[in-house]
């Protein structure tokens, strides 16, 4: 499993969201995608998902160009920052629907469904749910098809501590299976234990992409958050 990004540029009218970005992620990695607001993180995720179409450059997933393709998304589980669902559907219906929409059907992994105790409220309509519960549904949906690539956009926002721990455990479990996991987050502390790599973006470019250990050694910091921060400052100056 790998994602190869080659010379991607994306412009929205006059704003440049990605400027000639090249990198590659491969299986077994759990990458934190970091950067200040508006640095292009979400755009990057969306170009990988095919939601945003790059102005220039090529993205390959498992060696295949994703342009005009959609089947590769069978291998990707995506948890959006703010998941929104048809208001009149119940949790159960949403999960059912997504399951039906994805073909070919793989083994369904409903571990999160039960560990988040969504089964107890499965007949509630989506428009009655709190932001946190919706996040749980999103997470559940992302992991459901046992995809080999997981893209989680701000998974920690809105989740309570217990749910957070459940999710982390799940991520670790999946990572152990050799999956590629891409997470955007601002809360590095919470994720430190599960991360293998950090990818730092700034002003539409990738500032650095290094493994956790490498960062800690080069900055001689024990805490990842501090290490990343000092590295960021070093490179910027």
């Amino acid at each position: 499993m790998n994602i190869e990004i080659q010379n991607i540029t994306k412009r929205f009218n006059k704003v440049t969201a990605l400027e000639n970005v090249s990198t590659s992620f491969s299986s077994g990695q759990c990458i934190a995608l970091l950067g200040p607001n508006g640095c292009g993180k979400t755009t990057m995720i969306k170009t990988i998902l095919g939601m945003v179409i790059p102005s220039a450059g090529v993205i390959k997933v498992n060696g295949k160009n994703i342009h005009n393709d959609y089947i590769y998304r069978n291998d990707i589980g995506y948890m959006p920052q703010i998941g929104k669902y048809p208001a009149n559907m119940t949790i159960k219906e949403v999960v059912e629907t997504i399951r039906k929409l994805r073909k070919p059907e793989k083994d369904i992994d409903l571990e999160l469904y039960f560990s988040f105790k969504l089964d107890e409220i499965e007949n509630k309509k989506m428009n009655t749910l709190s932001g946190g519960t919706i996040q749980k549904v999103s997470a559940c949906v992302a992991f459901m098809h046992n995809p080999s690539i997981l893209i989680l956009d701000e998974p920690t926002a809105g989740l309570d501590m217990i749910a957070m721990e459940v999710l982390k455990e799940k991520i670790l479990k999946e990572q152990a299976k050799g999956k590629l996991i891409l997470i955007t987050s601002h809360q590095l502390n919470e994720l430190e234990e599960i991360l293998t790599h950090v990818c730092m973006m700034d002003e539409a470019r990738i500032l650095f992409f290094r493994s956790k250990e490498e960062i800690k050694i080069s900055t001689q910091c024990d805490k990842l958050a501090t290490a990343v921060y000092s590295l960021f400052k070093n490179i910027k100056s």
Binding site: G50, M51, Y70, R73, N74, P80, K84, P86, L101, R102
Partner: peptide, 16 residues
């Protein structure tokens, strides 16, 4: 009103 739902659909392995 379906913008978000469409967003969800687009991230799924479905043809636009």
């Amino acid at each position: 009103n379906s913008t978000e739902f469409i967003e969800l659909l687009v991230s799924q392995p479905l043809k636009r």
